[in-house]
Amino acid sequence: MFGYVLPDKNYLYLKDYALFQGVYCGICKSTKKQFGNLPRLSVNYDSVFLSVLVHNLCGEDYTLEKQRCILHPLRKRNMALDDPLSAKIAALNVLLLWHKLNDDVIDGGKFKHRAARRLFARARKKAARSFPEFEAVIAEEYARLRALEKAKCGEIDRVADPFGCMMERLCGLICDRGGEDFKSLCYNVGRWIYLIDALDDLEKDHKSGEYNVFLAAFPDFSDRQSFVEAHRQDLEFSLYTGVAAIEEAAAKLDFCFNADLIKNVTERGLRVRTKLFLENHCQCKKIRM
């Protein structure tokens, strides 16, 4: 979960913009309530989409309320009140972040990563105690991913599989409705996030010599631009087929409310983001809503 799943702002209703922000704040608040202030850093945009998705499928609406928040001290802000689903999402964020940091430590093990992991250790412990099933799934899939990365596997689909399965299983644990379409949606979101992150990290991974699935699949990297141009067809195929599957699955699902926000993300946001990463050859990391 790295914060790539965003709506296309140019086509976003104002009500959905408010909702998006409110949900973000709600998750942040829930994190604070459960784990304290520091783990609030784990909140990201992907989890907002996930939250809206599961709320919708489970038929639980948000209650937006104006509240104060330490990060925005001047005015009260709209935020979604805490509910069991948001609490689960917040715990999920903490666990995912810890495991990502853990993965970094195992990969490179720089002091920076160790320190960061240390900071979240307590929150992770608590989250794992509350939701041991999440912890088990994440640990298992990360182990599978690590094994593939260690073997320098160059099959894009195979390497992205653990992340997709992780999302699919986690979403299944949070919300058991929606059937096959929901599963397919979650799998493909997870897959897409993994791949877009790999695309984003191309240059960095090339420099540091770390594993990157695209570098393993196509070892002829010189610079980002020519690499993307040379393999544009393959890259587009891997990413856009996933987006198409997400779109298709989302269209089949019945949403109770806020369908506009989900539609915006699945039909526009992901495509725009993919396009941006394939076009833009500069640093893409700084994404703001």
């Binding site: 099959e155 894009i156 689909d157 195979r158 599989d161 997709g164 195929f237 087929t241 996933g242 599957a245």
Partner: peptide, 12 residues
């Protein structure tokens, strides 16, 4: 089979 598993590249 690959397609149903969402492994589009391998499927292709």
């Amino acid at each position: 089979v690959f397609y149903r598993k969402n492994w589009y590249g391998e499927s292709k």
